[in-house]
Write a protein that binds this DNA or RNA. Structure first.
Lengths: 224, 224
DNA sequence: ACCTGAACACCGTTCAAGT
DNA sequence: ACCTGAACACCGTTCAAGT
């Protein structure tokens, strides 16, 4: 009896070394792969290898590589579900965006790969929370729409710029030298020294404040 | 003599059917190719064909395909040089961004390909004008930096979203149906109907107004 | 229903070689 | 200095076939 159950265990683990392939497992493996080397070296062959499966098997679960990327991008959205709504809309928006930004910095490829905002469940829940918050705060439908897109661009863009403008020390020095050599053309940039080495936490917070202040002012003015 | 010059012409045109290959010609051809089919079907082989040159010849002028893309992206910046500065900073910023947006909509690939804001001369001149305008308006160095990045994200993001969210009629109807089927999860999005079919001119203008209003308020408050 | 290997039509890039 | 063809080591995707 003991003998039998041991052999069953052994048999089970060797016969089904992996759980059955699902879209979820494909998505998880894709995120893993993209996290590992940011270059976007995601390959259908590598992905299949990682899952212990023939390359062509993927195509039964997924139509195209584009699909895999959309799934991965949406998974990052889903990884930070919207917080419970509070009674301060500015705080709610700030929390939502701050958490989104943290997720983007954890998975820089999903900020840099600017494909269609894949309208998967993750993105939709995120947008729903954002627009619901703004609606509850009393903004016009037009303002809600416009504001949600500026805010979306702001998180995505800020994370993408931060991720792609990460220079080596040598590049930074070389870049600053280049700016100074052409300081006739770029006096402001050369003098300011912020272009190549910057505090993105502050840039993000200040930018968010501008948008929220502008929105608040517009509401107070009782616009359309 | 006439005979001789005619034959010279013939000889010249057949012997040098194309001007010599330069980075400028490569860039122009790349922009052309990218404009033709948005999918990003830019290929070193296709590019070489277009230029009437062997594929490997490109690699004498350029290190990598990435370089070609960077050049093309910067060329779009350079195509809309900054306007002459006026005395109203808001108007100057608005003009700069509006023209940039028009250029992005003409070359959608350069909004969608979100690689490093290629720090070529086109981008640098653009940023220089933006930051110089804000500096002249009296903003803090910190505000200038933060504001220029929100504004950058806003144009780029708005153009990219507009370009990638361009659905077919069928997709739009299907999408709206999907939202309504899940209206328990997405009540705001389903009710608002703006997500899939929207007025991007208005979204852009309103978003810009929020940022500029927020900035103005901050300056008036005499912040750091 | 799910998985497979072989094959097709491509890629970007390198290299030794030409003028 | 500038250009070339052949070749390398890959790609995504399809297809006929297996269980």
């Amino acid at each position: 009896m003991a003998e039998r159950s041991r052999s069953l265990w052994l048999r089970t683990t060797s016969a089904r070394p992996d759980p059955p392939l699902t879209v979820e497992r494909i998505t998880a493996a894709a995120v893993e792969l993209l996290d590992e080397d940011d270059v976007g070296q995601l390959t259908m062959r590598r992905l299949a290898d990682r899952l212990g499966v023939g390359t062509t098997t993927l195509y039964w679960h997924v139509d195209t590589k584009e699909d895999v990327i959309d799934l991965a991008v949406d998974a990052v959205f889903a990884a930070t579900p919207p917080p419970p709504p509070g009674d301060d809309w500015r705080a709610d928006v700030t929390t939502l965006l701050t958490e989104r930004r943290a997720a983007l910095l954890r998975h820089p490829w999903s900020a840099v790969m600017r494909r269609r905002p894949a309208v998967g469940p993750g993105f939709l829940s995120w947008m729903e929370f954002l627009q619901a918050t703004l609606t509850r705060a009393g903004f016009t439908s037009r303002d809600v729409t416009a504001a949600s897109w500026v805010l979306y661009s702001h998180v995505q863009g800020s994370a993408a710029s931060q991720a792609t403008l990460r220079w080596s020390v040598a590049e930074r020095r070389e870049g600053q030298l280049m700016l100074e050599r052409h300081s006739a053309s770029y006096p402001t940039l050369a003098a300011q020294r912020h272009l190549l080495d910057d505090d993105w936490d502050t840039n993000f917070a200040l930018g968010l404040a501008y948008v929220l202040d502008g929105l608040t002012a517009r509401a107070a003015a009782g616009a359309t």
